[in-house]
């Protein structure tokens, strides 16, 4: 500013500082903010256990959980139960994905298919898969097939719903384009329908993976003789909270890992979209 003060203009000096407007938004993100909550919980848990404020019979100390996990790994129990659980989840997931995609394609590409299939699936959607357990146990017994079918039933619904929705929301302009360039039915499915429905399918997959673990937890606590759920159920009868917590941590890690894998697939498969976002 020039030294001379223009008449009518209020001069801003040190004695009259610029009034900063109050910030209304939440402000800048905190570094490693996501870790603060969990770390705080861990600290409270440790202090509570060390001071005896938390009863060991109610909740084992963090260090007990860590050493128990070490013991379970050392004698191989954790690995073998984990492997059984992962197998069940993956088989149920695989069958559920195939079933969901096939049904979505039939119902998405033909009006007759939609008329026949969509209603029953929407009804199935309204019934929680786990509510079907009594029937499934009567029909299939308490063996592996009951467990896998229960997981499959929890998986195929979100896959179907989101893939079907993805199919139905493909822009009709692309359908018109496919007609003008003379695509055959199969080329139309391969070039337009499947890639167009892929974002919906991948969203469904994220729900499906979560659903698979959820169903797994329940079926493994019913008359199982192996699996993480069985390990926890057995620990309950002996009051071993440390083993129960190891099981919970394993379930949590599995859930987080599988979600991360699906998100990675999503990023890779939808790279044409990322260019829009970046």
């Amino acid at each position: 500013m020039s030294a001379t003060t223009l008449p009518g203009l209020r001069q801003r000096t040190a004695s009259a500082p610029v009034v900063r407007r109050r910030r209304l938004g939440p402000g800048k993100p905190i570094r490693f903010g996501a870790a603060i909550g969990p770390v705080l919980l861990l600290v409270i848990w440790s202090i509570g256990s060390a001071t005896g404020w938390i009863d060991q019979r109610v909740l084992s100390a963090p260090w007990t959980v860590v050493t128990t996990a070490g013991d379970l790994i050392a004698d191989g129990r954790l690995q073998s139960n984990l492997w059984t659980s992962a197998q069940r989840a993956l088989i149920g997931l695989a069958f559920g994905i195939v079933l969901g995609v096939v049904l979505a394609l039939i119902s998405g590409l033909s009006r007759l298919g939609e008329a026949v299939l969509d209603g029953p699936i929407q009804i199935k959607r309204a019934i929680p898969s786990l509510a079907l357990l009594p029937l499934l146990i009567l029909w299939l017994g308490i063996g592996e097939s009951m467990k896998i079918v229960t997981i499959l039933l929890g998986v195929f619904v979100p896959i179907y719903i989101h893939t079907h929705n993805g199919l139905r929301t493909i822009d009709s302009r692309y359908v018109e384009l496919a007609q003008t360039v003379g695509l055959s039915q199969w080329e139309f499915i391969r070039r337009v329908v499947l890639p167009g429905a892929l974002p919906g399918f991948l969203l469904g997959l994220r729900f499906a993976v979560t659903g698979a673990w959820l169903s797994l937890v329940v079926v493994e606590q019913i008359n199982s003789t192996s699996g993480i759920g069985y390990m926890m159920e057995l620990a309950r009868t002996y009051g071993q909270t440390d083993i129960i917590i190891v099981g919970l941590v394993v379930y949590g890690i599995l859930g987080l890992l599988s979600d991360a894998v699906v998100r990675l697939i999503q990023r890779r498969a939808l790279s044409w979209r990322r260019t829009l976002a970046s």
Binding site: R173, Y174, E176, L177, A178, V181, G182, L183, E187, R191, V192, P195, G196, L198, W272, R273, L276
Partner: peptide, 15 residues
């Protein structure tokens, strides 16, 4: 009316 999930070359050669 380019297919957003197909690269430019695939769009040109569509069908």
């Amino acid at each position: 009316r380019l297919l957003p999930w197909a690269r430019v070359h695939e769009n040109v050669m569509l069908g």
